[in-house]
């Protein structure tokens, strides 16, 4: 394995190991997802509103807000004992650090997004049958774009006096295209429409994720270096 991949994997492994041991972020995101599902279940009158019409929007909003809980704390564990400074002083390229932090965040958020999908399909009685695989794929693309932007801006907000409060203000405007394409795609897939009908939207989601990853990899060094 090349040194670059070894460095990326070392950080991913370390982040996931820390999360497994602390369960700090996954517990917060998971609890939020379940509670949001329960509350939305009681707030929607299914006699006047078809659950399939609103589920996609609620799933994506839960994902975005729940994701912020976790992604916003990406650099908090690093702040203890100034450990992140040790990482920055190592020979690991900054883009490798970014890709590693994004990968670890993606693993967490993707797990939560699948939980969100399960919770909403349970409470809203959604029949995901034929499009389940595509839904899982679309949520994966959305999660990737979200964590790429979220990780970059978490690094920005961690270094400010406003901290996590600043993160939504920075990230939400940039997430608008992702939410538009994500909700549109998810609504149709939940409704049982064929994949060919949403293929363009999925491409846009993929492009968004790639653009966010590339931008993050390039800009991260300017955020974390003095």
């Amino acid at each position: 394995m090349s040194t670059y991949l070894t460095q990326v994997w070392a950080i991913v492994w370390k982040d996931l190991l820390l999360e497994i041991r602390s369960r700090e972020r996954i517990a917060a995101m998971g609890a939020f997802a379940v509670l949001a599902g329960v509350l939305f279940n009681f707030s929607i009158d299914t006699t006047t509103t078809r659950p399939e019409d609103v589920a996609a929007g609620l799933i994506w909003m839960t994902l975005v807000f729940g994701g912020l809980l976790g992604v916003g704390r990406t650099f908090h564990l690093e702040a203890q004992d100034d450990a992140f400074q040790g990482v920055l002083m190592s020979p690991a390229p900054k883009d490798a650090v970014f890709l590693a932090k994004t990968t670890a965040n993606f693993a967490l958020l993707y797990a939560v997004s699948l939980l969100v999908l399960g919770v909403f399909s349970l409470f809203f009685g959604l029949n995901l049958g034929q499009n389940l695989g595509w839904l899982v794929f679309v949520l994966g693309l959305g999660s990737l774009g979200f964590v790429a932007l979220g990780t970059l801006f978490a690094a920005v907000s961690t270094g400010t006096s406003m901290g996590e409060t600043l993160l939504p203000v920075l990230v939400f405007p940039l997430l608008v295209p992702m939410v538009i394409y994500g909700v549109g795609t998810t609504t149709r897939l939940i409704d049982g429409r064929p994949f060919s009908e949403v293929e363009g939207n999925v491409r846009m989601l993929g492009a968004f994720a790639l653009a966010a990853l590339a931008a993050g990899a390039v800009l991260f060094r300017y955020v974390v270096e003095e």
Partner: peptide, 12 residues
């Protein structure tokens, strides 16, 4: 470098 801070992860 050995700094004021140890650059260590407490849970590792």
């Amino acid at each position: 470098m050995l700094s004021h801070k140890g650059f260590l992860y407490g849970r590792l």
